[in-house]
Amino acid sequence: MRRRLEILAALTMFLCGGYAHASGGALEVAMPVQMEIFGIPFNFNHDTIMMCAVVAVLIYLVCWLWMRGLSKGNPGRGQVVLEMVVGAFDDLVKQSLGPNRGRKYLPYIGTLFLFIWTCNMIGMIPIHHQLIGTESFEDYNHNGAYDPGEPFTDANGNGRQDPGFKMAGFEEPTKDINVPLGMALLFVLLIGHGSHIRYHGLKAYLLDYFSPGGIIGCAMFFLNVVGKFAEVVSISFRLFGNIFGGAVIIAVVSGLLHYIIMPIGLYGFFGVFVGTVQAFVFTMLALTYISMGAAEEGA
């Protein structure tokens, strides 16, 4: 049962992560995957879904390689590092949730941090997007400019008819608002509010919206609802804005300086430093929101 719930949650997050709102402008989707679910047309962002999958597989592979040959008596160098990281998160979660429930929530929190951190770092791998299965296709348009993006046909009917399969370029999936929003919905709504209902009961959860109680509580109802809503918005937009803004600044400033040396420093600050700090902040805030409903007595 629990396993099935986890799979359902992961699937929800995956779909939330890729859902591309059909808006124009800067947030426009390069190659949306169109689907109809219950008759409602959905656009899914091809690049974001693919990069989420790449990140997930990457985490799985690295953890699997790292986990091989762990031993109790004779820990290697890798195992010591791993134990330090896991121990730090264990302490963190135990401090805010209490020793018993903390252990239960540790996998979620650790996975969240790993996923966001890897998402933020993956933009630094310099792999451009590639088209696979485009045998008779011309990647140069009639002006001679490199144009792998859209299918075109010239007056004689030659040229690319079918874009084939597009392997996404390595960009941060967190640069798309839908990924942070999906994670915020999953962790704040599903896990946070869900564990509040589970440990305190539905009645206590609903009464929490009238939090001071009495007449003042009724007046505060809308404020509490907006407060709960703002949690999701603020946590997701913080991550999205930092990563997206960092990517824009890296692109603009690197272009101004003709890509001489400076991009290394920019990637060091906006990629490594801001990415790590924001991953940690997202994790800490998710933990704080979860601990509002799930903390043990006296923890």
């Binding site: 402008g25 603020s234 937009f237 913080r238 930092n242 997206f244 803004g245 700090v277 924001q278 805030l285």
Partner: peptide, 19 residues
């Protein structure tokens, strides 16, 4: 990082306005 978020909101709105 938390107090930076208001600046980030204005950045998001500026980018939306820009487009």
């Amino acid at each position: 990082a938390v107090s930076e978020s208001t600046g980030i909101y204005s950045l998001v709105i500026a980018l939306l306005l820009y487009s």
